[in-house]
Design a protein around this nucleic acid. Structure first.
Lengths: 306, 306
DNA sequence: TCAATTGATTGTCCTGGACATCATGCAAGC
DNA sequence: GCTTGCATGATGTCCAGGACAATCAATTGA
């Protein structure tokens, strides 16, 4: 279902899939897919099944696959590919907690999910909750979504509920001047903000003072904010789909302009795909890395005091 | 400052201003502005001052002005225009509370702002806080930003702090089955989520059960979610900049597919610009409208019981 | 005074071409 | 055998200029 009822125009497809108009036209020219119909005005009309296929292709490309190989395959082939790609984790080995939460999610039991999350949070404490429950759960949700087992709105609901849980946890700590002072945000184009909350939830119990700007801060505003708030660390989060090139350029520019005394941390799924290391940028592919880096700073500072 | 140090390519400008590549090129062709330089590869390089001017132009257009009139004016003329346009509200008449909070914001006192918001919230109660403090404060922040008195990162910090305050307030109410059941979200392309929180903060104290999907839910997922969660109301929020056409088309499509028993509410600044009324869609240009609509439903339900 | 027609404004889409960049794979050297 | 470097192919992004539909504004007619 959509505006027209059966097909989307190129703008709508761009919005839904995240593939630019240029890319959509180029793929059509080069690979023969997608092959939208045309309306009275000779404008492209993308049938919904093609949009669905585009969505899977995008998802697979975000994990590193090349489009040329994917384009010809059928929807079912792609689904199999996605399934095998979603890791060696098999149904049987999925921890019960994650399975339960996914069940709550797909049965649209918002209240139940909320309770389950709050429950786990209270049982484990913030930091263990984040590393041991949220991180694997995110992965499970991502896999389910890639397999097509999860609707978009279900994923949205998950993100929202998780946000509630994490913010509650963070709020339980008094907001006080702390060390180090960390600025949290994402680059323009990165909508995904859960990573920021997760990092904040890890750092705040350690006494760090976190200032979050939410998502999508222009690079020179990140710079200005870092100076204005006199932070010690600028921490950025990148989801898997973020364009490597944009990240590299942005991080380099930011590093060039920030004072040397300000550390620059880059975390999130994307950082696993980065080949070359960036001078002056601390890459943190795993969540715990941020915690380790924080403790590293502490030790350093202690030693320099002696 | 940016990746190159002094100029942005067309993609970056698109991201920063929200103006599509097509529009940027068309304006250059038609109006002679912007007029970017070219790099070695003959690709457009937009100087930062032109980007700043584009940002103001976009902002003014979002309030209803036409580009043809704006394009030739100088940056200072535009600033004056923005200032006069930002309402009859003069410095002197700005309530003290708003002035104080703006001061906290521009002096980068995150903690102070947090306390001020929490303070106002506790003093007024959630609903009055939203209608009497947050709404005017939003307007003041919007005006300040339009006048160029506010940096992007300051606006981000404001949004984040407000989100913390509102979520805390909402969380104070038990999440329980309630009537009516309201689904809250925004259309794809609408990033602004504060409106959703504000509405939620108004409705929850009345015993409504709110399910928020966050921002940017594809239209057919809104539809699916409404059915899956068996909601009575679907409430959508649109910021001032949202394209009228997209909103109209989307609302019509959604109305067409939702069962007649499900009410469709559209709120936010954009709805003030809508000329024609949409059949079956309740427009709520003012915040309080949602509350009134809720109470209206109640009365109706009561009367039908008799 | 209001409504309808008309003309200008404005955004979006189209085609087809060019090119920088990155990956892949092969060959040469250690 | 393994690594390094280069060539070739794959891929995304940009460009120019044209077309047209939708909307706005203004003039004309009732």
């Amino acid at each position: 279902m959509q505006a027209s009822g059966f097909a989307l125009n190129i703008s709508a497809v761009e919005r839904e899939t995240g593939l630019s108009k240029d890319v959509l036209r180029m793929w059509e020219r080069r690979y023969g897919f997608p092959e939208p119909g045309r309306d009275d005005n000779a404008e492209r009309q993308y049938p919904l099944d093609q949009v669905a296929k585009l969505r899977i292709i995008k998802r697979l490309m975000d994990t590193g696959m090349r489009p040329g190989k994917l384009m010809q395959r059928s929807l079912t082939e792609l689904n199999n590919l996605a399934e095998s790609r979603s890791g060696p984790r098999r149904e049987a080995t999925t921890p019960a907690l994650e399975r339960d939460m996914l069940t709550l999610l797909t049965s649209h039991n918002a209240t139940g999910l909320q309770h389950a999350l709050a429950n786990a949070l209270m049982r484990q404490g913030v930091q263990r909750f984040v590393t041991e429950t949220v991180a694997p759960l995110n992965r499970a949700v991502g896999d389910a979504w890639m397999r097509g087992d999860l609707q978009v709105f279900e994923e949205h609901l998950y993100a929202e509920q998780l946000q509630v849980a994490l913010r509650t946890a963070i709020n339980a700590f008094p907001r006080q001047p702390g060390v180090p002072k960390v600025l949290l945000t994402t680059f323009p184009g990165e909508h995904h903000g859960l990573g920021l909350l997760m990092v904040e939830a890890l750092l705040v119990p350690e006494g760090a003072q976190c200032i979050s700007l939410g998502t999508q801060t222009p690079i020179d505003d990140i710079h200005k904010a870092a100076l204005a708030h006199k932070v010690n660390v600028v921490a950025l989060s990148f989801s898997e789909a973020f364009p490597l090139r944009q990240a590299g350029e942005g991080l380099a520019a930011l590093r060039r302009h920030l004072p040397g005394t300000v550390a620059l941390w880059a975390g999130g799924e994307m950082t696993r795909r980065l080949r070359k290391s960036l001078p002056g940028v601390a890459l943190m592919p795993a969540l715990g890395d941020a915690l380790a880096a924080l403790k590293g700073r502490r030790t350093e500072a202690d030693e320099s005091l002696r």
